[in-house]
Structures are given as structure tokens and as C-alpha cells.
Simulated scan of single mutants.
Amino acid sequence: MKNIKRGLLILWCCAQVGSVWAQAVGVAAKVNGVEISNFRLERHFADYLLAQGRSVGAIRSPNVYKRLKTEALEQLIDKELLWQEAQKRGLNVDPARVQTALKKLKAAFGSPENFARRLAQEGFDEASYTDYLGQELAAMMMLEALTPVSAPLAAEVDRLYQLNMKQFERPEQIQARHILLNVSSASDKESVAEVRQQIIGLQQQLNQGADFAALARRYSQDSTAQQGGLLDNFQRGDMVPSFETAAFALLPGAVSEPILTQYGWHLIKLEQRHPAVSMPEQEAKALIKRQLATEQVTQARAEALTRLRSDSELVVLSR
């Protein structure tokens, strides 16, 4: 529903910045002699920001504002080029398709009154917006016609799968809790032994039925103390060797003997073990195929728009 509303070029956010309307006079660009007014740019700019989850009032940096405004203008120029090309080729949108799209937009606003009110805020009436919507649909159809792409070759999909098989595998992982009592690297043997006795004391409490998470919250000197010592899932190679070896040797629910690392003395409790998994080959190849198709479409569209621009007369007056 939200995406449908965005398609209406909402100017609601522009009400926060009154100066926008003062600037919406004059011409932003000319495309083969056809003017793109500043007013038209402001309407499209609002929609461009909303599509990115932004609003005019939230932009604090003048450089960011200028960059986004330029991007919106470039997009608007592309739309005008596509519309003009559609006219040249006699590409017409089925009126029934336009009416279907219009009906969906009306439904998104809950009532005809809300829809009409929003159109008026944007400088449209239903007739002019219907014309505009037809142009938008024609531009989209023209872009599709200019960028026919074939399905990715099976051989290329196979090749990329073989090269990236590791990317579709997740090695064995575990989740654990730990209690850490710090030992400085400069500590002498007596200090290390003293801290070891403290961690043994906590081990004895666990053996008597104490809750590991509760002890971690009370005594652990690690940043995970507030989470009861809970660590994120990790795999072999993520932790220091002595800690990792002890953790992976445990069964779920078991607690390790005191383990010394460069950080201090640890007690480790294994919460759960996640075995290694691999994405099925067919699923992985389907993912590669979709990515290749997306890349081909993106490249083809960029090339088509570049050709249209090179064959056109463009004058940009607003930067």
C-alpha cells in the first residue's frame, strides 16, 4: 500500500519547507526543446526522496540535498527521453491498463475524497493525472522495449557456481555463554593463580546448581555480562585457539574447566550447536541466475539511456 502511494508523487513532505514552492518557478532542464519546469522537478524530487525513505525536512547537509536533487533531475530527464521515444515509435498504453493503475491508486487512499484532495495538493486534477500516469506507463514500456535481455546461459551459471561454492556453505557454528575474569598480560604468576582460584570458586557454585547466566551477569568482566555472558554464534577460526578448542569440545548444556587465554580465565557453557549446512545446488544456481539477470537488465538499461542521451539535445539549467 505504501509503495502505491509513493507512485503518486506525494508532496506532503515538501510542506515542511516553504521555500521549495518559491523556487518552483522557471525551467530546470530542456530535453530536445521540451521544458522540465522547476515545479515538475519539485514534485518528482519529493517522490524520489520518499522512495528512499527520506524527507526534505530531514536533510541537513546542503551538499547531500544538492546531490539528491541532481539525481532526481537526471531521473526525470531519463523519463522525458523515454516518453519522447515512445511517442516517436507510436507506443501507446492500453487505456484499460491506465484505468487499472488509477483504480489501485484510488483504493490506496481509502476514499475518492482523499484521493482528490491529494491530487489537488500536487497540482493535478483526475484528468491531468490520468494523462501523467499514461506517460509514466509508456516510459516504462519503452525502457523494457529498449532493453531486451536473454536468459543467463546455463554454462555461465554453472561456472559461477563452481567458483563460488564456498559462498553457499555455512560451517558448523555454536552458541555459548562465558564468564571472564580478567588477567592482565603483565600479571605475575601469583596474580594469575589468584584469579584462577576465583574462577574455580564460580565453577563450584555452578556444580552446586547456580545459574550460569546469573553468575555471568554478577561476576563476568566481559562486555557480554549484561546478556548473561551470551556470545553470538561463532565458527572455528573466530575465537582464540584455546577458547575455541574448549568450546567446540563441549556438549550442549555442559560447562568447561577453567580456560586461560590472553584475556583472562574463562568458564564456557555450550548453549547449542548448529551443524554445517549447504544450500542445495539447484537453489544456489537459481540465486545466481536471478543475480545475473538483474545485472544484465541494469547494464542494458544504462546503455539504452546513454544512447538516448547521446542522440538528444539536453540543456540542464538547474544544478
Rank of each mutant, 00 (worst) to 15 (best):
V183L: 09
P258E: 00
S61Y: 03
L202S: 01
L231A: 10
R159I: 04
R236A: 10
L50H: 09
A138H: 01
N233K: 15
N164E: 06
F39E: 06
A155E: 15
G201M: 09
E271F: 08
T100S: 11
Q23T: 12
R40L: 08
Q23R: 10
C13V: 11
L9N: 12
R89G: 14
D94F: 10
D211I: 11
A276I: 11
Y161E: 00
P241H: 06
A210V: 03
T306M: 10
E257M: 14
G33T: 12
G123T: 02
L49I: 06
E71N: 09
D78T: 08
T261H: 03
V255D: 02
D232N: 15
M142Y: 03
R290G: 13
F212R: 05
W265N: 02
E74G: 07
K69L: 10
L82K: 01
L91T: 13
D47M: 12
Q87V: 14
F168G: 03
L119W: 02
W265G: 02
F39Q: 10
K30A: 06
I59C: 00
R40S: 04
R290Q: 14
S184N: 11
G90F: 04
A28L: 03
V27Y: 00
P241W: 05
D232S: 15
C14V: 07
T130A: 13
L317W: 10
K2C: 02
S111W: 09
A58T: 06
V316Q: 07
R43T: 01
A154D: 15
R290S: 12
I259N: 01
P171V: 07
V93Y: 02
F212Q: 03
D222A: 08
V149A: 01
K66A: 11
